[in-house]
Structures are given as structure tokens and as C-alpha cells.
Design a protein around this nucleic acid. Structure first.
Lengths: 185, 185
DNA sequence: TGTACATCAGTGAACGCGCGTTCACTGATGTAC
DNA sequence: TGTACATCAGTGAACGCGCGTTCACTGATGTAC
């Protein structure tokens, strides 16, 4: 059953991708090794050929999800600037996606209690989101840096709340209010 | 072992309170019946004398946490107006509390995937937070209503992100930026 | 008001199940000659 | 380049454990007379 080096690397990647998707769909606690491995088309026993333990997988999966979410933000920025990035992130399509894009909104509160490696991966995502939306490094104009930080908080918070709320009208209103607020400022 | 009516009601309340605290400390998935009942000083077998099932407990616990968080917000508002409520919510003390206050920030992303009763309880908390910070009902000045909605999103998002991030300086910066943003607007 | 019985809050054992992790085994790949 | 052997990716069974839920049992409370 031994696989070639490339096949082995591909397997590993597909496991991380399966975990990343499953986490954003159903949360950190539902991403069990059996669920993740099954989604990658494998049995759970082979997991430890690739990873030290489950914590390592969660950290790598959160890093991958963060990169995926940032890639979409960069695409929006390139195509239509900051406003398109905001509108895309705070869209009904993003809110309702079967597999959500942003791990900060999908599993933010769980990540706050996750292992340090997972939190470090999420921290990197937060930093890059701030830089992407602010366009400035930390030493540039303080006001716009702090506006970018608050803006990321508003985006993550609004998307999370819009998914919690059972009333569709209120959910839409939350997204619209956050968009209006971020595009006006 | 039968208890008086008052004692029975007291037991039930203490179980919901234990669940509410445990949920905000360790998340929805860690609030197992055994953990909750032990925290309330009981064995797990008696649970079903008081509740239909675990979902009902989670919904009631989220409702209780929401009321607790709102009570603190109302206290702040009465004592020092909107700015004191914002500063209190976005304080390092709230971020670092062993038992956090706000269920939306503590378990927001998990609540989005929880049972409908739990989500309905959280929805009520969101609505009341918006009304408390906006001060207006839905039919008043549209701008201030939408500012209140975006403000709640900023507060919940900033507190959540400040707890995810492993870098204390960035964590402080997130809280400070959100405070500045909400007090300036 | 006092007694006899029914109710039921809480205990602790048990159920079937899914969890993370380990391990003996398999057979194809990689390596040494 | 061809052969012989070592490596190791993936399988599937097994481990001890905690989960939500059920249940027979206990004894104090509530109720009927």
C-alpha cells in the first residue's frame, strides 16, 4: 500500500483541506478525525502517518482556511477595491454558503479557546486582513490603521451575528448596516 | 429524597446558571450534562426531572447569559451613558474574565450552528443590545438605528478577535481601535 | 390536627455510541547492489 | 538495467473514556381522609 512521495504529499494536503472545510461547515468540535479522514476518502487509522495529533491538524486547517479567505479578499481588492471586498465579505452569499469562507466568522469563538498553534494561525489571518483592508503598515497614519482594525472587527462581528439570528429580516439588516457603515467611513 | 417545590425550583435555576457559566467559560460542546450537573452540585441522573433534553438546557442557559450581559449594559448606561457601556464591554477586564459576560462574544460562532431555540434566545439578546445602544426603536431615525446595529457588530467582533489573537499588543490594539471608533462616531 | 399513602427529586448503574490514539498487518515504492 | 530487500502509506480492529439518555431505587414532601 505504500504511495509515491508526490501521492503522499497530495494525501496530506487533501486531509488538511477536508479538515479546513469541515471546520468551517460544522465547527471545530465536529471535525473529528473519523469525519475528516472519511471526507478525504481515507480510513482514520492512517492519520498519524501525516500528523503528530489532532491539534496539529486543526492549526494547519485554520491556517489554510485563513489563506483561502484572504485570497478571496485580495481578488476583490484587485477587482474593485476596498468597497468590493467589504460588499463581498458581507454578502448574503457569504453568509449562506454551505461551506463558509472566513474561519474567523465561522469558528471565531471556538478558536479563542483552541490550542496556541491554532490561535497563532488565526492571528496571522487577523493581521493580514487588517493590512489588506487598511492598506497601511502599523507605522503609517494611526487613524487609518485603527479604522482598519475596527473595520475587520465590524465585518467578522456582523457576519457572525447575521448567522446566529433566526429572523431573516434582522439578519439582512445586520449585513446592510455593517456595509453602509464601512463604506461611508 | 423528594424536595419541596421551592427547593426544586431553586435546583432547576442553579442548573441553568451552572450551564450558562460553563458555556461562556468553555464553549457549548464542553458543557456536557455531567459537567453542568457536577458544577451545580448534583449527579447527572437527575437532569431529566427538570429538562426535556440537553438542547432545552442550552437554550435556557443562553437566554440567562444574555439577560445577565444586558443587565450589565443597562447598569453602565444608567451610570455613564453609551460611552461607559462601550468602554465596559470592550475592556481588558471583560476580555480576560475567567467567566466572560457576553454569550455572543463567548460562543457566537457555535450559536450560529446551535438548535433553533438557542438561536432564538441569542436573537433576543442581539435585538435588545441594538435597542439599548441605539436608544431608538426600529421606526426612528434610520441612520442611528443602522449605526447601533453596526456598533453591536463591532463590539462583538472586536471582543471575539481580541480573545483569539495570541499577541497581547494586537489584542489590546483591537479593543482600543473599536472603542475609539465607537466613541468618535 | 394526625395518619396513611402517593408523588417525585435526586442517586448511581447501565445502554449504545463516537471519540483520539495505538498497533499488527498489507503490499507498493524506494534503495542498495 | 535488473534483482532483493527495506521502508512506510494506508487498513481495520482494538484500547479506555466520556457522551446523552434511561431506569430501578430511595426517602422526604405533598395530599386525602
Amino acid at each position: 500500500m505504500r504511495k509515491s512521495k508526490e501521492a503522499t504529499a497530495q494525501t496530506r494536503e487533501s486531509v488538511v483541506q477536508a479538515a479546513a472545510d469541515l471546520i468551517r461547515e460544522r465547527g471545530l468540535s465536529e471535525a473529528s478525525l473519523a469525519n475528516v479522514m472519511a471526507r478525504a476518502g481515507l480510513t482514520h487509522g492512517g492519520f498519524y502517518r501525516h500528523f503528530r495529533n489532532r491539534d496539529q491538524l486543526l492549526a494547519e486547517a485554520l491556517a489554510l482556511s485563513g489563506r483561502g479567505s484572504l485570497d478571496l479578499v485580495y481578488d476583490s481588492l484587485r477587482a474593485g477595491g476596498r468597497s468590493q471586498a467589504v460588499v463581498g465579505y458581507l454578502s448574503k452569499a457569504h453568509r449562506d454558503a454551505a461551506t463558509p469562507t472566513c474561519p474567523l466568522a465561522a469558528v471565531g469563538s471556538e478558536t479563542a479557546r483552541a490550542n496556541p498553534e491554532a490561535r497563532a494561525a488565526a492571528t496571522k489571518t487577523v493581521r493580514e486582513l487588517i493590512d489588506a483592508l487598511g492598506g497601511e503598515p502599523a507605522d503609517a497614519a494611526l487613524t487609518s490603521r485603527s479604522a482598519a482594525v475596527a473595520g475587520v472587527a465590524t465585518m467578522v462581528g456582523a457576519l457572525t451575528l447575521s448567522r446566529i439570528v433566526t429572523d431573516p429580516a434582522l439578519s439582512d439588516e445586520i449585513l446592510a448596516a455593517a456595509r453602509r457603515h464601512l463604506l461611508a467611513g
